[in-house]
Structure formats: C-alpha cells, structure tokens
Amino acid sequence: MNVLLAITAGVLFGGGLFMMLRRSLVRVLIGLLMISNAVNLIIFTAGRLVPARPPLISAGESALQPPYADPVPQALILTAIVISFGVTAFAIVLMQQTYRSLGNADMNEMRSTDTPVEDEEEAAS
C-alpha cells in the first residue's frame, strides 16, 4: 500500500508543481495548496504505514501496546499542517493584494522588480 500512497503523493506533488508553473495567479495558488498537502502525505507515507492502532494509550494500560502507528510523523505533520496553513493564508492574501495593486493576475506581467531601472532623467526628457 505504501507504493500506492507514494504514487499518489508523487502525483499530487507533480500536479501542484504543474499548476505553479501556470501564468495565472489563481492557478499558482492552487498549486501551492496542493503541494503543501502533498508534502504532508509524503512524510506520512515515508513514516512506514502498517496496519496498526492509533497512538492512544487505552484506559488501563500504562504504555502503548504494539502494533501502534508511529506517533512522531503524525506530530511532525500536524506541526507542518498548521505552519503551512499560516503561510498559505498569508500567501493567499498577498496574491490578492498583488492583484489589486497590479490590476493583473498574469505572472508573466510581474516583471517590474527584475527589469533594470530606466534612467529616470533621460526617460523624462
């Protein structure tokens, strides 16, 4: 099953990347969201999935009884999910503001900060 999930994660990642390579700001955003989901899935899959119980110590026990799912990747992913939520929330709003300020949602039109400055006085005359 690992294999199937690994492929899924790969497809999600590749698909997200493809979307990020589009020109439309909205598509780029969608790609970003897909990639952050893909990464979590990657870590999850890499954390060795076996049929197991959730990492909860049941009443009466004093320790986890095997087989249990590795809680560490879960904790890591949880942290990662929350972080990426914060980051994507910011990114989404940033894109919105960029669009508003530029009046354009075409990534190819966003080049002003890279193209060399014109000579202002010469340009003026």
């Binding site: 590749g14 893909a38 890499a46």
Partner: peptide
C-alpha cells in the same frame, strides 16, 4: 512536473 512527481515517489519508496 512528471519528473518531479516520479522523483518524489522514488525517494519515498527507497528511503522508507
């Protein structure tokens, strides 16, 4: 994109 996806899959499968 496909290459990246494949690579990710391969990485997951080998490293785990």
């Amino acid at each position: 994109s496909v290459a990246a996806g494949v690579l990710v899959t391969v990485l997951v499968l080998t490293l785990s």
